[in-house]
Nucleic acid binder design. Structure first.
Length: 487
DNA sequence: TGAAATGTTGGGGCG
DNA sequence: ACGCCCCAACATTTC
């Protein structure tokens, strides 16, 4: 009789799970295990909002695994120590897991694989967190891609080829034979993932962590929102995005499953409208892929700009920007679209992508605060915080990363607001003190006529703050700063 | 997956 | 009828 451990990490699913599949197919007994070892991720241990999600996602995973026959054994401590202990307890012959690509985890997993093999335990890792392994995709010159469009052309092409070759998501594991030796694990509560203050109490109105929730999101998105994706995704008051990012981060659904489902949709409904929208959505899955490949090839980028010339960029100093940073974090900048975004983040653990770009441009360019500060705040407050995506996104906005927004591309937050939230519906939702302002005044209340402010019960400096930066002069300051960096 | 400045064009008002 | 100016609307350039 043989036994395998399946070490769950960011692959909290029973569908299209290569490691779990292999364990069930090759061994008599299977013991699922999850080790909570935040120290092993260094500065990038899950933040507050993310831990809330982890708690509920692990509860959901346990429920699904138990229904299939073998509940998950939860442990906290060092991954290798706990895996070794458990392997001994259940007399495991093998440990299987699905690979991750964050620099510290690659290093850790390599050591663990070697150590387990020294113990005489079979250790094997599988692919599944990405569409392709990072080393599989190279430019004509043999190096990693730094530009999205050629990267995506390659990915898109290979997806087609492999699909014709029969590549498809693996079937869901429905029955797992448990080990009679499987111990009881730690309790979920003892992992201490939930926030002490009940800051996340409204998150459940917005999210259903776990594989069932992920599949539900994908289904709902494919039934309705995707038909308006390409245009609708830019408007924060419209519910046109998939909402899959926090699920994808933890592997509650695999990217291949998402791609296969959307490709099926394109085939079933051959109308040009569906195709254009669906293909645009697939590009966004491509950006996720791009971000992960970049992080693998450039492991220093979570803290360092990809392009070295930005190392000496003249950011303001912490003691000078500390108050502005806090105003930004709390949604009290006096720029309505920025404050709406930052408050949506705080209240729901998520922010619409268009608004992420606006608040990030405001922080890095109008306030000249280092992008790493923004990345750190997002890390702690986003339920979809993901090292690869977060790093790419911030370096993109700051102008120092791969395929970045050029340094002179500075969003005018008020113009963006008027363009993408014309009726102010998004602002009114998250900045209620401005709700009564008319559509013309709500994007830049500092320019509104006194009568308009009065009619809406808005008193600048009292009921709503004056803007902490002048959009015109701060833009000029940023242009001058970036000019210094140029070559 | 910008914004602002600058350049060009063409219709209409007007003397 | 004609030239002149204004200025929106659009296009191009620059940051």
């Amino acid at each position: 009789m043989s036994t395998a451990l399946v070490w769950f990490r960011r692959d909290l699913r029973l569908a299209d799970n290569a490691a779990l599949r292999a364990a069930v197919d090759r061994h008599d007994h299977v013991v699922p295990v999850f080790v909570h070892a935040p120290d092993e991720e260094g500065d990038w241990a899950p933040g507050g909002a993310s831990r809330w999600w982890w708690h509920h996602a692990l509860a959901a995973l346990d429920e699904s695994l138990a229904a299939a026959g073998a509940p998950v054994v939860l442990r906290r401590g060092g991954s290798l120590v706990e895996l070794r202990k458990l392997a001994k307890t259940v007399k495991a012959d093998a440990v299987y897991w699905n690979r991750l690509y964050d620099p510290l985890l690659v290093e850790r997993d390599t050591k663990i694989k070697a150590a387990l093999r020294e113990d005489g335990v079979e250790a094997e890792s599988f692919a599944g967190h990405l569409l392709f392994e990072p080393h599989q995709l190279k430019t004509g010159g043999g190096g990693p891609y730094r530009v999205f469009t050629p990267f995506w052309r390659n990915v898109d092409q290979r997806l087609r080829e492999e699909r014709e070759g029969g590549r498809a998501p693996l079937p869901t594991v429905r029955a797992i034979t448990p080990s009679p030796l499987a111990p009881k694990g730690d309790t979920l509560t003892s992992l201490g993932l939930l926030p002490k203050l009940d800051w996340a109490k409204r998150f459940p109105e917005h999210w259903t962590p776990g594989e069932v929730g992920a599949q539900g999101r994908l289904d709902a998105f494919c039934r309705t929102a995707i038909t308006d994706y390409r245009k609708g995704r830019d408007f924060p008051a419209i519910d046109a995005t998939s909402g899959l990012s926090p699920h994808l981060h933890r592997g509650e659904i695999s990217p291949l499953t998402v791609v296969a489902r959307v490709e099926r949709l394109i085939e079933e409904d051959r109308s040009a409208g569906v195709r254009a929208n669906a293909e645009w959505f697939l590009r966004e899955v491509g950006w996720r892929e791009f971000a992960h490949h970049l992080l693998f090839h450039f492991p220093q980028t979570p803290t360092e700009p990809l392009y070295e010339k930005f190392a000496k960029f003249p950011w303001r100093r912490k003691r000078d920007y500390a108050a502005d940073l806090e105003a930004w974090q709390r949604g009290r900048t006096g720029v309505p679209i920025v404050d709406a975004g930052m408050r949506q983040l705080w209240e729901t653990g998520w922010m619409h992508n268009r608004v992420r770009m606006i608040v990030a441009s405001f922080l890095t360019k109008n306030l000249l605060i280092p992008w790493q500060e923004g990345a750190a705040w997002f890390w702690d407050t986003l339920v979809d915080a993901d090292l690869a995506n977060n790093t790419l996104g911030w370096q993109w906005v700051a102008g120092c990363g791969a395929d970045a927004s050029p340094y002179f591309r500075i969003f005018n937050a008020a113009t963006q607001s008027a363009k993408f939230d014309a009726e102010g519906a998004y602002i009114r939702t998250f900045v209620p003190e401005l709700a009564k302002l008319d559509d013309d005044s709500i994007h830049a209340p500092w320019e509104a006529k006194p009568a308009a402010l009065k009619a809406a019960d808005v008193a600048l400096g009292r009921s709503y703050v004056e803007p902490i930066a002048d959009l015109k002069t701060s833009r000029e300051r940023a242009l001058a700063a970036y000019g210094e960096t140029k070559d």
